[in-house]
Nucleic acid binder design. Structure first.
Lengths: 107, 107
DNA sequence: CAGTATCCTGGGAGATACTG
DNA sequence: CAGTATCTCCCAGGATACTG
């Protein structure tokens, strides 16, 4: 279980996966814009880790200006239903507690 | 989504919830024994956070030696199905990759 | 656009010892 | 048994500037 949890550890991994799940393919800055408070440096790192774990694919187009697209792999898609449920559960929980997520937590 | 993920952030929260889910009520050291690599100090902290979020209850029995029991609340139980699925998914993932979780990750 | 390169800081977490 | 109390260290992550 610890091993499993470590897979999605890191403040942004879950969100990144969730965005790719709901928005489909996304480019670096597109993703970056959705994650206020996440620096490029950190975003790169989390993306690389997700790539290493085969959850996402990274496609580089040899054009100028550079274009790189990130997408879920088949493997990455397998966690989709769980993330959806988790998101629903969390939203419900916040509501039951009468809380509103802080600005930097709405991503 | 970030807000939701923060709820189960911290290396041990998910595991603690999972243990209480599958083992029922547990005492402090009982829990501690199941989590190699987690210091008492850290365990206390995570338990307090889970308590603050109303996921678990803490019952103190006024006896000598002290006896404290931790259990899931109704609220805590609502995340049960998700954790089970997550665990299954993670286990499957590790197998597909031909990996064995490291000793300190088997909890 | 999609990152690197540096520098730097806070607090997450370990180790050890102690106590009501 | 169920935690505190300290002290310490490390590195995840922030800020800023730069580049193919």
């Amino acid at each position: 279980m610890v091993a499993t949890l470590n897979l999605i550890n890191g403040r942004w991994k879950g969100v990144i996966l969730y965005y790719l799940l709901t928005h489909g393919t996304m480019r670096f800055n597109e993703l970056h814009r959705q994650l206020p408070g996440c620096t490029p440096r950190l975003l790169v790192k989390q993306l690389r880790e997700l790539e290493d774990d085969a959850f996402i694919s990274r496609t580089v187009y040899p054009v100028v200006p550079p274009k790189v697209e990130y997408a879920l792999t088949e493997e990455g898609r397998t966690i989709g239903p769980i993330l959806s449920q988790l998101n629903e559960w969390g939203t419900g929980w916040l509501e039951r507690r009468g809380l509103r997520p802080r600005a930097e937590e709405t991503a």
